[in-house]
Design a protein around this nucleic acid. Structure first.
Length: 623
RNA sequence: GCCCCGGUAGCUCAGUCGGUCAGAGCGACUGCCUUGUAAGCAGUAGGUCGCGGGUUCAAAUCCCGCCCGGGGCUCCA
């Protein structure tokens, strides 16, 4: 950061017109004039951040007291450096510098950022009247000055459409919350803060115990390694997410992992995404921090006409965010994650509403059926004018999803969306985690020059973009499924993953690993032929132990074969799904019955092989 | 990034006012047993006590720095 300080007799500027893609609100043609003020021409350079604010403050206040000035004009000035901070970031930093100086008692007048301005200056004739200062960002010592309190009103809407304004001082007094403990928990977490819990989240224990995923100390914090059983879950979720996206009408695309920060569109998005980037040393490049840096430039180059609208895209977007080390936790908060990401580029409000509604309905179903069971809630963040406009639309969604929802109102647009919803999983320890989301974006069509040809042959900006993610990230979806199993366990039920996602769906247990192995193989092969993941516990241990391990491995269906079964040609099947712990029923049935039971449980969901031997004796221990 | 707690065998952990403190269970391996619904029996092999420095005659144990994990802040597009 460079600051040219001028002690002036007289200073005047006039705002001609905006010249940058981002600029401060200011009246066109307005001019302002001052006498006896200190003017600071400020240039923000690459790498600048708020860590320099303290030094700037002490320098400037020293200087002002030396020369006896009371007023400071901060004037954005791009001409002291050839290594500028991209304007999208600069405008934010510039404004937080102004706020910071004001907060610390300096009387600051701000000239607007991003405008072409004319100015006249008359400098005082003393030796201290002109001075250039340079500030370098301190490494690793970021101080945050972001203003809080972006929401000013909170309320709940129930499925009958009744609104209840919520005040954090009396959370216990609302029937609508007392009837919905999960929602109450969420509201409490949002308004008051999370209850402190000392134990680690259940999913961290399970992800390792089930040999799905583990930390990888050889990599950076928050990058995980996946074992075969984790990989098969991940691939199945992706299969299903893709299937849903295709049914929804999206094209599937794939964009790169690395982006240039000197491209205006990328720099603009970086500003939106909080500067948690993985930078590439010595290059103006970052690892992909969100889906948008790939999706917007992709769509910008597509020739679209109204005939192809709404245009829908789907992508498995690997994203990298260098979250603070203390924030990274299990599968909930990681530095590298895979999002199942949807965008719908909509030509009008009616279409956008339809897409928003459909995706919201779909995601509610995913939360119920796969990700969280009943343990989730719906939240909205909305700019108030949009709430007034779409109130009935929101009520319709809530009615059809059959869940009350929590609303947070903002009085201005702080991000690219006018409103968004969040499908929040609630964990047994009281924590909540955002999974799916659907967002209504009214800004980026124009900002990123995303256009289509309308019926009149005119090229127009896409007015509304729906951003959505079905499973949020694969990591979070898995975390939520494991926590959902923890809920089951807490309630005395057998903890299991959804049947179609269980890495082992069926385990065949020969009573004697020698005498009954052939029969077990025959049964397992029949099951395998139908595409179910089946294993045989061929180890030389007691049946009791085989059963114990199968249960602790969360295998939903156990098939016991011994002398009786070999004799009768029938099977002894334990269906653990939905059973109480310790009371899993065992039923005698034919192989045909079993196969049709498996079909019923699979319910048409995707199938995949597990990359491990069918024989437990052939599988290594991973953890 | 900050504060608190932790890191001992593949896993779970015991052992720490400095001196038989290199330990257990599980797992792995070998042998016996041939098993009927949550863990048969016996034996063997596994460890730079997270890493690096320091103090001391002597360090898993005390001190400093770092790495990794958990909790709490801050943060959460």
């Amino acid at each position: 950061m460079k600051i040219l300080l001028l002690d002036t007799e007289k200073f005047e500027f006039k705002a001609i017109e905006p010249e940058s893609s981002v600029y401060d609100e200011f009246e066109k043609g307005k001019s302002e004039s001052f006498r006896d003020v200190l003017v600071a021409f400020v240039t923000l350079e690459k790498g600048d951040d708020d860590s320099v604010f303290d030094n700037v403050l002490s320098d400037i206040s020293d200087y002002m007291s030396k020369i006896g000035r009371k007023d400071l004009i901060i004037y954005p000035y791009a001409h002291l450096s050839d290594e500028l901070l991209p304007s999208s970031q600069a405008i934010k930093l510039y404004n937080s510098l102004v706020d910071f100086l004001k907060k610390n008692g300096i009387n600051v007048i701000k000239a607007p950022f991003g405008w072409n301005k004319s100015y006249t200056v008359q400098i005082k004739g003393h030796p201290l009247a002109e001075s250039l200062r340079t500030y370098k960002a301190k490494k690793g010592k970021k101080v945050s000055f972001t203003p809080k309190e972006k929401f000013y009103k909170f309320f709940v809407i129930d499925s009958e459409g009744n609104e209840y304004e919520i005040f954090k001082e009396k959370l216990d007094e609302y029937d609508v919350l007392n009837k919905n403990p999960a929602l109450k928990r969420f509201v409490q977490n949002e308004l008051i803060g999370k209850e402190t819990h000392k134990e680690e989240p259940a999913h961290i224990k399970y992800m390792r115990k089930l040999e799905l995923v583990d930390y990888c100390p050889e990599s950076d914090i928050g990058h995980l390694k996946w074992f075969p059983k984790g990989v098969v879950i991940r691939d199945l979720i992706l299969d299903y997410a893709e299937q849903l996206a295709m049914e929804w009408g999206a094209i599937k695309m794939q964009n790169p992992l690395i982006y240039r920060t000197d491209v205006e569109a990328i720099a603009l998005l970086q500003g939106e995404f909080h500067e948690r980037d993985y930078k590439i040393e010595g290059e103006d490049m970052v690892l992909r921090f969100a889906s948008d840096p790939g999706a917007f430039p992709f769509v910008q180059k597509v020739s679209l006409s109204y005939r192809q609208m709404p245009f829908k895209v789907y992508e498995e977007a690997q994203c990298f965010r260098k979250e603070q080390s203390g924030e990274v936790v299990g599968l909930m908060r990681v530095r590298s994650f895979l999002m199942t990401d949807h965008h719908a580029f909509c030509q009008n409000e009616e279409i956008a509403k339809k897409e928003y509604y459909e995706l919201s309905k779909l995601f509610a179903k995913l939360m119920n059926d796969i990700i969280s069971g009943e343990h989730w809630v719906l939240g909205f963040e909305i700019v108030d004018e949009y709430y007034e406009k779409y109130k009935d639309f929101f009520k319709q969604i809530i009615k059809d999803i059959k869940k009350p929802a929590f609303f947070k109102l903002m009085n201005r647009m702080t991000h690219y969306y006018a409103f968004k919803n969040e499908f929040q999983a609630i964990f047994p320890d009281g924590n909540n985690l955002q999974i799916s989301t659907v967002q209504w974006d009214v800004k980026n069509g124009e900002r990123f020059n995303l256009t289509y040809m309308n019926e009149e042959g005119k090229k127009v900006f896409v007015p509304i973009i729906i951003h959505a993610s079905s499973f949020g990230s694969i990591e979070r979806a898995l975390a939520s499924m494991l926590e959902s199993a923890a809920w089951q366990e807490k309630e005395g039920n057998v903890p299991l993953l959804p049947f179609w996602l269980s890495p082992e769906q069926v385990r065949v247990l020969p009573v004697s690993s020698i005498e009954h192995l052939e029969y077990a193989k025959k049964i397992a092969n029949e099951i395998d032929k139908k595409g179910f993941r089946v294993s045989i516990d061929d180890r030389d241990i007691t049946l009791g132990k085989k059963v114990a391990e199968a249960k602790s491995d969360w295998v939903p269906i156990l098939v016991v074969v011994g002398a009786k079964e070999v004799q009768s040609g029938r099977l002894n099947v334990v269906n653990r799904i939905g059973a109480k712990i310790g009371k899993e029923p065992s039923v005698e049935m034919s192989i045909e019955d079993l196969l049709s039971l498996l079909d019923k449980l699979q319910a048409g969901m995707p199938k995949r092989k597990l990359s491990l031997s069918m024989y437990l004796s052939k599988r290594p221990k991973f953890i």
